[in-house]
């Protein structure tokens, strides 16, 4: 089976299922990307047409993935907040003035609760998809170049191996927005690199080049520009020499899903994401005219 979606497409080549991300500007993860990733997970759960490896890559020159779709997130928050304000204003006008302020504050709390609930649902769906990719029984390879930022970094961290083109840069810029990564990135980075490096990357928001990432053990191979997919295909062909059940068992033994830390990260993210400073930071982000305002 092949699929051509809005945000991603997949095709079979040899023993590999190749999944191409192609939603501009840089494969931001919003509702469209999430829906299609859920479709991919269903396909994997149905046996992925017998594929022995999954290769995830981007066909966009702009990079692998710049993270969550912050413009969509900001638009959602603003729309719900404005709708709630309008509803409250209509009621408050009819209330005596001493009660009016109380009603407005109560409405603001309700508005925040609704936003939080919606983000929570989105995060639950993301976690379900990323967990499924993490423990898929076949070998998974992320081929990355350019920005591998935020949610994009978190997506790459679900893969068994990362093949990085020289241009790849890994970064968790979330603290600039007043949040932490919320797609499972912290526990997965801790799993791969340990807490000290995770602290360095998170608490400074700095980016990491492909070569350094390979020295640290995050990246399996560094290859020249535009050579990532070819390298990943050779890795996939090699993995296909082994018995599928043996690969699945070995992977399940080698790669633990850090369940408790994933749940803790989700709770912490949801506590932080509805703070006023996040709304202000998102508004500032959207107002910026840079071509790619998420970059350092």
């Amino acid at each position: 089976m092949e699929l051509a979606g809005e945000a991603l497409s997949w095709t079979h080549r040899g023993d590999a299922l190749e999944v191409a991300l192609h939603r501009g500007p840089t494969n931001e993860i919003g509702t469209v990307m999430l829906r299609e990733l859920e479709g991919l997970v269903r396909y994997l759960e149905d046996g992925a047409g017998g594929a022995r490896a999954l290769i995830l890559h981007s066909t966009l020159a702009s990079g692998f993935c710049a993270g969550a779709d912050l413009r969509e997130l900001q638009a959602g928050i603003t729309e719900r907040t404005d709708r709630r304000k309008a509803q409250v204003s209509a009621v408050a006008e009819r209330l005596p003035s001493p009660v009016r302020g109380l009603a407005t504050r109560a409405a603001r709390r309700v508005g925040k609760h609704l936003v939080r609930r919606e983000i929570s649902q989105f995060i639950d769906r993301i976690h379900a998809v990323f967990d499924a990719l993490d423990r898929a029984p076949l070998l998974t390879i992320a081929v990355v170049h350019g920005p591998v930022f935020g949610g994009g970094f978190e997506l790459a961290l679900t893969a068994d191996l990362i093949v990085a083109e020289k241009s790849a840069r890994f970064c968790f810029p979330e603290l600039r927005l007043g949040i932490i990564p919320g797609f499972g990135g912290i526990p997965r980075l801790e799993r791969e690199l340990g807490n000290a490096m995770t602290r360095d990357l998170l608490l400074t928001g700095r980016s990491l080049g492909a070569r350094r990432a390979a020295e640290l053990g995050l990246v399996a191979q560094v290859v020249s520009r535009d050579k990532g997919l070819d390298s990943a295909r050779r890795v996939a062909a090699q993995a296909a020499r082994f018995d599928a059940e043996v690969v699945a068992q070995a992977k399940a033994f080698l790669k633990h899903v850090p369940r408790q830390r994933l749940d803790a990260e989700k709770r912490q993210f949801l506590r932080m994401v509805t703070e006023d400073r996040v709304e202000a930071a998102l508004t500032d982000f959207v107002a910026r005219t840079d071509v790619r305002p998420y970059l350092p």
Partner: peptide
């Protein structure tokens, strides 16, 4: 632009064999 600046940073790190934090 900011994306090209990232590429330049990668070039610098490779050419001089150093790691330079963005900040």
């Amino acid at each position: 632009d900011s994306l090209q600046a990232l590429d330049l940073l990668t070039d610098l790190e490779e050419a001089f064999d150093v790691e330079v934090p963005d900040y």
